[in-house]
Nucleic acid binder design. Structure first.
Length: 180
DNA sequence: ACGATGATGAAC
DNA sequence: TTCATCATCGTA
């Protein structure tokens, strides 16, 4: 038997196109450490937000205080509040200077981006912090990943305002065939 | 199908 | 300083 420490995903994993990173995150494990306890969720649903051209991406309005993190290096959290109630958790991707990120929308046993951040006790204080053990929130290698046939591609949720970009298949879901 | 609820960015 | 908007969710 070959027991190796579980590998934390580092900058190089995230320093690729958001559209490449997004499906690759399915099956990876989101880890939150709080008060000495670690909770883990297998990532099941994500969306890519890719650059200023993407009307659904917050960076479509250019660089603002809110979108700073997306313009920074890959592997950092981008967290913001929507509808005055729910925090959305994103991980930044791509080269520094190019704004892009992947929204983590759901995990095994937790469906919905707002419910996920609540389950993890994640709020805006994580914004622009690195995904690492130091910050108490990171992503690890998983034990299984979906096969190609198990990944469903659909338009993103809640971005109907984004014109032609609203219909692009930037959402990736691991169809949970094995669930029982 | 609707209201809660508050930060953000843009207009004035 | 005001205002519309919003990557949602729970209850009806």
């Amino acid at each position: 038997m070959n027991l190796q420490p579980i590998e934390m995903l580092e900058k190089n994993f995230f320093r690729r196109d958001a559209l490449t990173v997004a499906p690759d995150l399915l099956g990876k494990v989101l880890v939150r450490e709080k008060n000495g306890e670690e909770i883990r969720f297998v990532i099941m649903e994500v969306e890519a937000y890719d650059g200023e051209e993407d009307s659904a991406c917050h960076a479509s309005r250019g660089r603002t205080p809110r979108t700073e993190a997306m313009y920074g290096p890959a592997g950092f959290w981008y967290v913001y509040l929507v509808y005055g109630m729910h925090y959305m958790l994103n991980i930044t991707t791509g080269e520094e200077g190019y704004p892009s990120a992947v929204l983590i929308r759901g995990a095994r046993e937790v469906t919905g981006p707002g419910r996920l951040t609540r389950a993890l006790s994640v709020d805006a204080s994580f914004n622009a912090k690195e995904a690492s053990k130091d910050t108490g929130l990171w992503i690890e290698e998983g034990t299984i990943s979906p096969s190609l046939g198990e990944v469903e591609k659909t338009p993103r949720i809640g971005v109907d305002y984004a014109g032609e970009w609203a219909s692009k298949p930037y959402r990736f879901v691991w169809k949970d065939n094995l669930k029982c």
